[in-house]
């Protein structure tokens, strides 16, 4: 935890990635307490949902050793959110993309959004919570200033594709291959797919925004039309050959 005069910042290594908190509100005791609670929540979510942990609820549920009623209530919530994302995306999002139970594609964004909400409920209204490159923004970083979020260029290390500005509340999720190779699974074939170098989605809340980004990435050619038809979401895609496309309303957020 770090004081910066008027705000609070924290970086936490959890869920195999980096979460960072950028809180611009006055660090009241309630806000500090909420930050600690948000960090605890992330570790709790990791313990319950990690597919890398043999003894996590999700691993044991996947192996059939326990039933849903034996799990914390969040497991049911996540699986029902996954089912909804699967329905919304015509099956291009899956809680078992490679065959076995793995809701990781939803959990990180959902946990990031929850962390943001915990802060908000404690009176932190101007925050940026970054869950390994997927962000939930609220409010603004300073008076009259929008959040400015660089979109990393997937093919040119160090360069940005564009800068997304968010005047008041926005989720930004990027699915890509640059970071960890081809790790998005086509749920229809169960094999890795990489029709894009990266695909960035902006929307109001991170849970659906992140899952839709994953689903759109897996969908490939039909992604643009699908996102155009989604109310409140805009996308920027970088293709493997470096060409880019943007949905019609993306210019409201970035160039």
């Amino acid at each position: 935890m770090s004081d910066t005069g008027s705000g609070l910042r924290h970086v936490e290594h959890v869920m195999g990635t980096v979460f960072s908190f950028d809180i611009r509100d006055r660090p009241t005791p309630a806000v500090r307490h909420a930050l600690a609670e948000a960090v605890r929540h992330l570790h709790h979510v990791d313990a319950v949902f990690s597919t890398y942990r043999h003894d996590s609820h999700i691993s044991r549920l996947g192996r059939g050793e326990i039933r849903l009623k034996d799990c914390p209530p969040e497991v049911g919530e996540v699986l029902s959110l996954c089912a909804r994302a699967t329905r919304d995306s015509d099956g291009w999002f899956s809680a078992a993309p490679a065959g076995s139970l793995d809701p990781s594609g939803l959990v990180k964004g959902w946990a990031t959004e929850a962390a943001s909400r915990i802060l908000h409920e404690a009176g932190a209204f101007d925050t940026c919570v970054n869950g390994g490159g997927d962000l939930q923004l609220r409010g603004r970083p300073g008076p009259g200033t929008p959040w400015r979020i660089g979109i990393a260029h997937p093919l040119r290390p160090g360069a940005l594709v564009t800068v997304v500005t968010a005047a008041d509340g926005l989720a930004v999720a990027t699915s890509g291959t640059a970071e960890r190779g081809a790790h998005i699974i086509d749920p229809h074939t169960g094999t890795p797919t990489a029709p894009f170098a990266s695909l960035t989605l902006v929307g109001p809340r991170l849970t659906p925004t992140d899952t839709y980004a994953t689903a759109a990435f897996a969908r490939g050619d039909g992604a643009r039309e699908w996102i155009e038809a989604l109310d409140g979401y805009e996308a920027l895609a970088v293709l493997p050959d470096g060409r880019e496309w943007r949905t019609r309303g993306f210019h409201h957020y970035g160039s």
């Binding site: 490159g133 959040w147 979020i149 660089g150 160090g158 360069a159 800068v163 997304v164 890509g176 970071e179």
Partner: peptide
């Protein structure tokens, strides 16, 4: 090198955070 370049790019672009890199 990518971390270095991103630190420099972020600084030059006056941005608050980066999406798509972790």
């Amino acid at each position: 090198p990518r971390l270095t370049q991103e630190a420099l790019a972020a600084q030059n672009a006056h941005i608050d955070a980066v999406s798509g890199a972790s």
